[in-house]
């Protein structure tokens, strides 16, 4: 059905569009700044102001970043960890959220309390480290995945979404004699794709950006994740670590240049930035209608 647009609609759309376009411009310039920084010569990086147009076209910084011996293993580890995390986390979280979304679940209040309690009381770093060691997970990528398997907040978001799905959709299936797990897999999950996609994105981004746990639990450099590299270059690069003896002995090493930092940030975050557009297709309106009709 085609509906004619009224004048009010047109004005509304125009204003809305202008505001949103303006917002885009506002949020885009730091990237222009970083991209042009990464392509500029190191000497011009100290120049005042934002760098929105690169000075010359200098890909040295990228060359340097990719020369780093650990960048490819870093990529591989990060991608594997992220994908594994998303799959495992969502499996455990959606199941749990589904059970907790049922008002008739036995001990429901207790279970919810059991989960929420952990948001406010944590044992801290030392016991967690001992735990990982006692579980024999040291230097194992599972040490980066299992401890953050369920995020209470994310799980509750999924649970609340499940709760907003009208009960009558399920009831039909119950009458057909389907069990809970069948309903979960065949009805709830397809109906909840928008929130599952959202939480998948949250988990993926969180895992992609994590680095401290890697420093804590991973010993073998070839198992390091990408962000450790970024951290070393962006944070450590600002503090003088190359001791003067080493300089004196020959390597004319200097603090990491701002151009290399910019290139590192872009190289390490570009892949994860590109995930969102693929997730957007789950945000299409009318999902529910379709499934109801089907």
């Amino acid at each position: 059905m085609k509906i004619k647009m009224t004048l009010g609609d047109r004005i509304f759309n125009t204003i809305n569009g202008i505001i949103l376009a303006f917002l885009c411009i506002l949020t885009l310039f730091p990237f222009l700044h970083l991209i042009s920084m990464s392509l500029s010569s190191p000497e011009s990086a100290s120049k005042f102001g934002l760098h929105l147009i690169p000075e010359g076209l200098n890909v040295d910084a990228y060359r340097k970043v990719f020369e780093n011996g650990y960048i490819f293993s870093g990529y591989a580890n990060t991608i594997i960890n992220t994908v594994l995390s998303v799959i495992l986390s969502l499996a455990v979280m959606t199941l749990m959220a589904y059970a907790l979304s049922k008002k008739h679940l036995v001990h429901r209040t207790f279970f919810t309390g059991f989960v929420v309690f952990t948001m406010f009381f944590q044992g801290g770093l030392i016991p967690s480290y001992l735990l990982i060691r006692n579980l024999g997970l040291m230097d194992n990528r599972l040490a980066l995945i299992l401890p953050v398997l369920v995020n209470t907040f994310n799980m509750l978001i999924i649970r609340n979404y499940f709760m907003t799905i009208p009960a009558d959709i399920e009831e039909a299936a119950v009458i057909d004699g389907a069990n809970d797990l069948y309903i979960f897999a065949r009805i709830m999950l397809p109906l909840s794709m928008p929130i599952i996609a959202t939480v998948a994105l949250w988990v993926a981004v969180e895992r992609w950006n994590a680095w401290f746990d890697c420093l804590l639990y991973i010993r073998t450099p070839s198992k390091y994740v990408l962000q450790v590299l970024l951290q070393r270059i962006v944070i450590d690069g600002s503090s003088e670590f190359m001791n003067f003896e080493v300089r004196t002995a020959g390597t004319n090493s200097e603090p990491t240049t701002e151009t290399i930092k910019a290139a590192t940030i872009i190289v390490s975050s570009l892949p994860i930035m590109c995930v969102y557009p693929f997730i957007q297709k789950y945000f299409v309106k009318g999902v529910m209608v379709g499934s109801l009709k089907g």
């Binding site: 770093l125 030392i126 480290y129 001992l130 060691r133 401290f212 420093l215 804590l216 450099p221 450790v228 951290q231 070393r232 944070i235 450590d236 503090s239 670590f241």
Partner: peptide, 17 residues
């Protein structure tokens, strides 16, 4: 290998263990 920016944090966890 202990990362410089988190030197005390990382080292003290290992000490504690």
């Amino acid at each position: 290998y202990i990362e410089r920016s988190k030197w005390d944090d990382l080292l003290s966890v290992r000490f504690a263990a």
